[in-house]
């Protein structure tokens, strides 16, 4: 597989967060807009270590597979999937709390 997709950029804290009512603010948000499946999940795995246990990592992704695959990744990797809200531009944002 060639991998010509753009590199993910790590957004700062709360950089593009939206109106997630009950969901906590992430410590780190990954901007995976425009990245094809399964890149958003790969970025999630790569950057899990960038947040401390108990902190929340978010990924913003247009890839429709992310809706199923972020929760499935969390289940398989024993992390806590918190749910989904939207970034300010309306793109879906998925939140995971690091367990280990």
């Amino acid at each position: 597989m060639s991998d010509g997709a753009p590199e993910v950029t790590s957004g700062g804290m709360g950089g593009t967060t939206g109106s997630g009512a009950a969901l906590p603010e992430p410590a780190l948000e990954l901007d995976c807009r425009g990245l094809p499946c399964p890149r958003p999940v790969i970025e999630l795995a790569r950057h899990l270590g960038d947040v401390a246990p108990g902190e929340v990592l978010a990924v913003v992704a247009e890839d429709p597979a992310a809706r199923a695959d972020v929760p499935a990744w969390a289940r398989m990797r024993a992390q806590e999937y918190l749910g989904e809200d939207v970034a300010v531009d309306g793109v879906a944002r998925y939140l995971v709390r690091r367990r280990d």
């Binding site: 499946c37 399964p38 999940v41 597979a65 199923a68 695959d69 499935a72 398989m76």
Partner: peptide, 13 residues
């Protein structure tokens, strides 16, 4: 992604 895989909570990729 497959609607079946998504419906059962499976990894779709």
């Amino acid at each position: 992604p497959s609607h079946v895989l998504a419906a059962v909570g499976a990894l779709t990729h």
